[in-house]
């Protein structure tokens, strides 16, 4: 019951943030150089279409009225149409989401699990040579521009060794159903996932190292040692169990960063996800798609942080509901 109330309040807190995102979008459109209706309809839109757009967004009405119309339109899920194809933006974006989720989700899983394990291991010996070396290395890893790493992987594994596919999600003319299809996708995922996971791995090693050693300095860990538990038990039952929770929160907060990496990686590997869509939209100057993607990404991050907060509250007895 208390959890339910907490969920309710957290959802309430999200609402103003969502509104602000939409308002930012609105202000940007109006501040940007050029005619608003052209930005919304596209440069070579015919006069009739232009007129419907002006009508829909209330462009001939007073400013605040326009803001209101814009809010209503966006919040009803209408992000306008693509210049190029005339298709609704929301549909184009939703179509791409699964591929992005697949890529980002698998990379995240690899990075988070491996990173937590390594970070926990080096937290046992803070200040040691191994700790300094791995910490330095992990900082170097998350300093790599992910798209560049992708290119280097392509260069080595696809061009030099001709081992792995360099782009796309499926082999053209390959199997379209059953196990073969899945294996084909997995095969195409190897390089992009490697690129993304490598960069994120650095983040997670570092995060885990910091939060585990913070927990190990707590007095309940000393109690555990005074009781006489072996270090293994201390690490799992006391250390990791307590450190995992802040890690989950950070995961929610850093999702924006993760999505950025995913978008850039998709561009390199021609992965048919959101990133690719954004890239193509930039090349074609298809502004409604870019705006739609920004709003959807923001909403996604907000909802993700909401979900992690609720998860945290459910997992951690300490959170005051």
């Amino acid at each position: 019951m208390r959890l339910l109330r907490y969920v309710f309040y957290r959802v309430l807190q999200i609402v103003p943030v969502a509104l602000i995102v939409v308002v930012i979008n609105f202000l940007l459109i109006h501040l940007a150089p050029g005619d608003v209706s052209i930005l919304l309809a596209g440069e070579d839109a015919n006069p009739e279409f232009m007129a419907t757009i002006r009508e829909r967004y209330g462009l001939d009405e007073p400013f605040l009225q326009q803001l209101w119309s814009y809010l209503v339109t966006i919040l009803s899920g209408d992000f306008g149409q693509s210049y190029r194809t005339g298709e609704p933006v929301i549909g184009l974006i939703m179509e791409r989401v699964p591929a992005t989720l697949l890529l980002a989700g698998s990379s995240l899983a690899v990075a988070a699990i491996l990173g937590t394990a390594i970070g926990t291991a080096i937290a046992r010996r803070p200040g040691s040579f191994l700790d300094t070396a791995i910490t330095t290395l992990s900082i170097a890893l998350f300093s790599i521009p992910v798209f560049w790493l992708g290119l280097m992987l392509i260069l080595f594994f696809a061009v030099r060794l001709q081992l792995l596919p360099s782009s796309g999600m499926i082999t053209i003319g390959g199997p379209r159903d059953g196990l073969g299809h899945i294996l084909d996708i997995l095969w195409h995922m190897v390089l992009p996932v490697a690129a993304l996971a490598t960069v994120w791995l650095g983040q997670y090693v570092r995060l885990a190292r910091v939060s585990v050693s913070e927990v190990l300095a707590e007095s309940y860990v000393t109690t555990g040692r005074a009781i006489g538990y072996p270090e293994r038990t201390i690490m799992t039952r006391f250390g990791l169990r307590n450190a995992l929770l802040p890690l989950v929160t950070v995961l929610g907060l850093e999702l924006g960063l993760l999505l950025t990496g995913a978008v850039l990686t998709e561009t390199v590997f021609a992965w048919p996800g959101l990133g690719r869509l954004i890239y193509e939209a930039i090349l074609a100057r298809d502004t409604p798609i870019i705006m739609g993607a920004f709003v959807i990404m923001s909403f996604t991050v907000m909802i993700a942080s909401l979900v992690t907060d609720i998860l945290y509250a459910a997992l951690d007895p300490r959170v005051r509901l």
Partner: peptide, 20 residues
Amino acid sequence: DVFLLIPTFFLVLLIVALFG
């Protein structure tokens, strides 16, 4: 707090795309 939740790269991207 609001800014913490906005994916910054996409906002930068949108601004640069709109303003040149």
